[in-house]
Design a binder for these strands. Structure first.
Length: 591
DNA sequence: AGGTTATAAT
């Protein structure tokens, strides 16, 4: 064995005096083993008593060796941790992706308050708020808000940024959460519910409160809030933030600019996204990735490619995310050759190691273009273990090209890999349905029932005058339910008189044809469109966000509706945008 | 002594 000072069998002859304040003891510390040996030295020399050293050990455990248990143990054995140490362990727990550990951070914080020997300081609260934000604990977050005021940190810039972030993150999560809590039984009913401006109001109120009490959200606040806004697609709120930045002379640099580009694009306003992008004083790889991803999501492959080349001309080397963007753009447009060439360029010229996401794009690209065997080959030969996402992309392609044999094989793999994920069952069922094999559809459904797996409920949002309305299944609490019902009836009639015939292949129920046709009429995106049509002026474009992929029947219907009602309808589904106008869709029916 | 932020395939 190499006899470094970390060899535990070696005897040490440290001088008894100034216990080795190595200036950078952690620089030579590379593995968990190194760390434990270094820790042992600190214990031996007594240097572990130094709170700074202990905190360093804790941080190193958590962030370099990802050993939270060890970090916690180091903290626990401290007889009297000072505030610095508390802050360190709180931050470590808060920054995990594990909800239990985030909750533990909150409990530990409460223990810190009860203990009473140390008081939280301004460095404590950002971590605690981060834990609330990530674990979506609004109630605790509000209590902590109170404490912040009580302890007098409500004017600290860092604290405020994290407070705002906490409110918005909790609100968004709550929104997502409510979808899963709804007890959705079947898909043959409709529902509407007025939604919940709570979360938005919460964020806006907080902003307004801040302004009136001279506590202004700063640059970081805006940067933190925008991704949450992008996720729910709340365009009005996003615009408000943009305006706020302008009015308050907050500089829109590459970082805030990237967040704005992404927000506008995810809220359906690609033109605004481009406008922001073009006026930025500086663009880095992330900014370019954002605009390339934006074009990809909107199905504008050509623009994505143009900007990819512009990035190179501007002297910015594309990063891995830029390649994910360009590959997904190729995939949405069916540009197989271009996609292949970007992939090999990434590996051979730029020297980036392809990640599972890149393989995912390639499988999607090849599969949807009909090269099913090549796609499967790629999965079998790639150096990374394929995950459920990859197999799902291939299964989707099997459905698209009605390849039952490969589809069944892939589905089997998927069900082993992720047995409780409804996605693979639904995809397999759709494959059988597209072949008209209703018996097999029923079999899959029965199996799901037996395993207590339910299809994720479809859900759509539409923002009208700054308020988000959400529509899902089995819920009729919307105040305009009657009018919406009437509008749906009218739409259905006009659709039929314009030659529309329901495409019932993707309806998941094994019921009779009439029942399936009725179910289609009440898909959440159609309800959202109906509500949009009766709630806005003619010509007003309708922007809708959907949690799942749009089905073929809705796609065909919305094309016609855009023609009949002369409306632009923009739908963001789980994967991309569809812009319906004059009877056709921007995806050119390839998605 | 220490705390915040943007991009990501299905």
């Amino acid at each position: 064995m190499n006899s470094t000072i970390y060899n535990p069998n070696r005897t040490f002859n440290f001088s008894p005096q100034p216990p080795l304040i190595l200036s950078k003891p952690f620089t030579s510390c590379k593995t968990p083993r190194d760390l434990k040996q270094l820790h042992a030295i600190f214990i031996k020399t007594g240097q572990i008593q130094d709170p700074l050293t202990a905190a360093e050990v804790i941080k190193f455990c958590a962030f370099s060796s990802r050993d939270i248990d060890y970090a916690r143990a180091v903290f626990r054995q401290m007889p009297e941790p000072n505030c610095f140490c508390w802050n360190t362990i709180l931050r470590v727990l808060a920054e995990t992706n594990d909800e239990h550990l985030q909750s533990e951070a909150l409990m530990l914080f409460s223990a810190m308050l009860c203990d009473g020997r140390v008081k939280p300081n301004r460095f404590t609260f950002p971590s605690v708020l981060k834990a609330c934000a990530r674990a979506s604990r609004l109630r605790e977050g509000k209590q902590i808000h109170g404490l912040i005021v009580k302890f007098g940190f409500h004017e600290d810039e860092f604290v405020i940024s994290n407070l705002v972030r906490m409110y918005v993150m909790c609100a968004v999560m709550e929104d997502a959460y409510s979808l899963f809590c709804k007890n959705v039984v079947d898909f043959d009913g409709s529902c509407q519910m007025e939604l919940d401006k709570r979360k938005q109001d919460e964020a806006i109120n907080l902003f307004q409160e801040m302004q009136s009490s001279n506590i202004d959200p700063n640059y970081v606040t805006l940067v933190s809030v925008l991704p949450a806004i992008a996720r729910i697609g709340a365009l009005e709120l996003g615009k408000w933030i943009h305006l706020y930045a302008g009015k308050n002379k907050i500089e829109i640099d590459d970082v805030l600019g990237s967040a704005l580009v992404d927000m506008y694009s995810k809220c359906g306003s690609i033109d605004e996204a481009l406008q922001v992008f073009e006026t930025l004083p500086k663009r880095n790889a992330i900014t370019w990735s954002a605009i390339i991803g934006a074009f990809a999501m909107h199905g504008r492959a050509e623009d994505a490619i143009i900007h990819f080349h512009l990035m190179g001309k501007a002297g910015v080397t594309p990063n891995d995310v830029a390649y994910i963007g360009i590959l997904s753009a190729c995939s949405h447009a069916g540009l197989v050759e271009e996609g292949r060439s970007f992939f090999s360029h990434m590996v051979k010229v730029v020297g980036l190691q392809p990640r599972i996401e890149h393989y995912g794009c390639m499988v999607d690209l090849l599969g949807r273009a009909g090269h099913l065997e090549e796609a499967e080959e790629l999965i079998r030969n790639m150096p990374i273990e394929p995950d459920d996402v990859i197999w799902k992309a291939l299964l989707g392609a099997c459905k698209m090209h009605k390849n039952l044999k490969m589809g069944e094989r892939v589905a089997e793999t998927l069900m082993e890999l992720a047995p409780h994920d409804s996605g693979s069952y639904v995809a397999l069922s759709n494959l059988y349905a597209s072949l008209g094999n209703w018996e097999a559809v029923a079999r899959v459904r029965l199996k799901m029932k037996g395993m207590d797996i339910r299809k994720d409920p479809g859900c759509s949002w539409i923002e009208i005058h700054g308020i988000i309305h959400e529509f899902l299944v089995e819920d009729d609490s919307h105040s305009k339910a009657k009018e919406i019902q009437a509008m749906l009836g009218e739409m259905s009639m006009k659709l039929r008189s314009n030659g529309y015939r329901p495409n019932t292949l993707e309806v998941f129920l094994n019921t009779d044809e009439q029942e399936r046709a009725r179910a289609l009429q009440y898909h959440s995106e159609k309800i959202a469109v109906a509500f949009g049509l009766i709630s806005t002026a003619p010509q007003h474009p309708l922007k809708i966000v959907k949690n799942l992929r749009i089905c073929e029947d809705c796609h065909a219907s919305l094309k016609l509706i855009s023609l009949i009602y002369k409306r632009q309808i923009i739908v963001r589904d789980r994967k991309r945008f569809h812009q319906f106008e004059h009877g056709s869709c921007s995806c050119m029916d390839y998605w």
